[in-house]
Design a protein around this nucleic acid. Structure first.
Lengths: 176, 176
DNA sequence: CTTGACCTGTGTCTTGGACACAGGTGTAAG
DNA sequence: CTTACACCTGTGTCCAAGACACAGGTCAAG
């Protein structure tokens, strides 16, 4: 299909992909704001529920490579960019770092299966998340214990060798 | 007591504070490396089990204000600096940020009780830590679930609209 | 005198965006 | 036509708590 012919046609086929390329697609906006089935940064962000800054961020680090409108320099995000960003956001929800995602996309872009990489990386990140969870849990318990103990203690002014008796006595007790 | 007289006396009184001003205090090292009961950065770090970079960091942001040896410009950490850093490390273990600690120290330095501030701040930080804990827990569960489901799925090459079926199908299922 | 271990301050790096800013564009109203 | 305003661009900086690098100074031992 010729992407430069028939705007009406374009919009029809575009509407057909409504579920893939964004939500609440308003033909009036599409007709007004873009040609060739592309959208600008703020619309792209809205469709995926993120800020324009997030879209610009992934563009800046070249995970997204939208074209540029020759006339005004505006970025033009295509359906491919939409799918790519949706993928990135999904991967972030699973604990992958942006660097991980770049590695995964490198495979996919070479038509190679990213799955072995994905499995390896999630094992790694899962371990880290579990360690993080244990640490946060220990911290929370320590904090709760402190609040509990402190509720029985008075305020005190600092002395020469004691800056805050609450903190220092708690630490001494708990052997931290 | 005159701090400039009698090094022998200094070291005696210093040894008497062994439990306060550091562990494994070796009089020979003290005698060789410092006058006036002060130590250099690496020794300070060793006594509190942190790196010299950490000691320099707190010096840089002016939480520690050690003197300077006029002759060579070396920093001289006193017992007061030791107590202060020990306090900072204790507070960090309780989830206070460095900025929190500066606020706490500001009160203490004016001889005012830091306790009300400490109580207010830990309530705040405890809430944040609990939120963090819930989020990390949810992430961990999501990741475990993904690993479980993926163990039943094959690797696949990317297609036009599917970069990695593992990640995208999981997200679609879980309605993320 | 050299070697090597220590010291100094300063600048940069880490994450995943968020925010600021200067300057360009597009459109609706007055 | 002008003006106002909303949008766009790329770039630089900020966040937290240090870690690491670097150029240059100090000091004791061999």
């Amino acid at each position: 299909m010729d992407f430069l012919s028939g705007l009406e046609l374009m919009i029809d086929s575009y509407q057909g992909k409504e579920q893939i390329f964004g939500v609440n697609l308003n033909p009036a906006i599409v007709r007004l704001s873009c040609e060739e089935g592309c959208v600008k940064v703020i619309e792209m962000a809205r469709r995926l529920g993120v800020t324009a800054d997030t879209v610009r961020f992934y563009t800046r680090i070249k995970i997204l490579k939208p074209g540029k409108n020759k006339a005004n320099g505006y970025r033009e995000y295509s359906e491919k960019d939409y799918n790519r960003l949706r993928f990135v956001l999904s991967a972030r929800q699973l604990g992958f770092s942006v660097e991980d995602i770049q590695e995964i996309l490198n495979h996919a872009d070479k038509k190679k299966s990213p799955c072995p990489t994905v499995r390896r990386l999630i094992d790694q990140r899962l371990h880290e998340t579990e360690r993080q969870l244990r640490e946060t849990l220990k911290l929370r318990d320590r904090m709760q214990q402190a609040v509990l103990e402190w509720s029985q203690k008075p305020d005190k002014a600092p002395t020469g060798h004691m800056l805050c008796h609450l903190i220092e006595e708690f630490t001494a007790e708990e052997r931290l």
